[in-house]
Design a protein around this nucleic acid. Structure first.
Lengths: 210, 210
DNA sequence: GTAGAATGCGGAGGCGTCCCCCGGTACACG
DNA sequence: CGTGTACCGGGGGACGCCTCCGCATTCTAC
């Protein structure tokens, strides 16, 4: 039985104590991680939840497992948020508002943004379903903005999420820069430039510039 | 004696063995962190450097201290890189090339980007001098691009560094997205939009979008 | 209600890491 | 060459991670 199934199994197990402990651990984890960040001691978590350490590890064999369970809730929040914003008269405001919400949600627990970045690319993750839903819901907003001519057609939504996720990682250390960085990312540093970025190999003095 | 002074003292101490151990530790740290990331075991570092663990902690009381010492070298590299690129016929290529170099340099050691973000804001840091030089050298490139009309005048260079640092943090997990994210950040998601980003409080459905 | 089986619980303990601390030692200085 | 000082080394306590297994609780069948 792998980690993924372990978590799922105990969530649906017929035994009452197992379900209760599962719920208790999840709630306590959210509380503790909010206070201390995603690297809080798991021993402390078990203690605070009033549960043996063995029980914690049976329900969530890895810390990542625990984070992903919490992440699921965040993704679901963001999904409904996106649906609320869909069809807005201003696709621009809708998308930027949602991206702000993304950052806020993900920044709440210090260290969570890294997990977000991980789940964005890992298709085998426990949270893949929630993550996909969120991506789909957000992409609707994105397409609306694109249809309105606000976003160049060749931009990929996944890259946008990655960029905003990167901003969230930075914002965990310095919360007040989140808005400015998001604004900068949206407008672009060099909006008018023709060459988006030179080829990665072009580390020399610059083609045709010497 | 605080951590900052401890490191500085041993770097300049009259004693030969102290200087030798300092240099040895620094070289070994670079080697080990390149291999294993910035969270490699410090016991292992001392062992590999052929030095007692106590010596390591006297020279570098915290892991952050060690990272910052390495960071100094990176910052110095980036400074000279910027100076090489200054005055290029294409300010656009010069700046983007330098920003790429920034990401490459900072991504080399897994976990370093977080320290970079930290030193960008901490004026009391051991590396503040190097960091400031680098910022100044980079800002010359930035101003050239601004003078060429490539960058809106109200953009702040520090925010650019923060954004690129954020991309670097993300790129540590997924190196191949660095170029795409940088390109996206340079052009902007919504280059033509008028409202850069709604006020942080505007979490409602969207003004006038009722 | 009861007995047996299945499943989950709990925490001791092994391991690795971090970091403090102090007895001993090598070096600078006269 | 002698002396004091600053540095060296590593033992050891504290803590966190995770495994393992005897015991308790819950479920199921009758």
């Amino acid at each position: 039985m792998d980690a993924k199934q372990a978590a799922r199994t105990s969530a649906q197990s017929g035994r009452k104590d197992a379900r209760r402990n599962h719920a208790r651990l999840l709630a306590t984890a959210r509380e503790l991680f909010l206070e201390q960040g995603a690297d809080a001691s798991l021993d402390a978590l078990a203690r605070r939840a009033g549960v043996g350490i063995g029980t914690l590890y049976r329900h969530f064999p890895t810390r990542q497992n625990l984070l992903e369970a919490l992440l699921t809730e965040s993704y679901d929040n963001l999904s409904s948020r996106a649906r609320e914003l869909t069809g807005s008269a201003s696709p621009e405001v809708a998308l930027t508002t949602w991206l702000q919400a993304f950052i806020t949600e993900v920044t709440e627990v210090r260290g969570m943004a890294a997990s977000v970045m991980a789940t964005l690319r890992d298709e085998r993750s426990e949270v893949f379903t929630s993550c996909t839903s969120m991506r789909a819901a957000g992409e609707v907003l994105f397409r609306e903005a694109q249809r309105a001519g606000l976003i160049p057609p060749e931009v990929e939504f996944l890259d946008v999420l990655r960029l905003v996720g990167a901003i969230a990682m930075a914002a965990e250390q310095e919360p007040d820069v989140a808005d400015r960085l998001l604004a900068l990312a949206l407008r672009g540093l060099m909006p008018g430039a023709e060459t988006p970025v030179p080829a990665a190999g072009a580390e020399a003095r610059g083609p045709g510039a010497g």
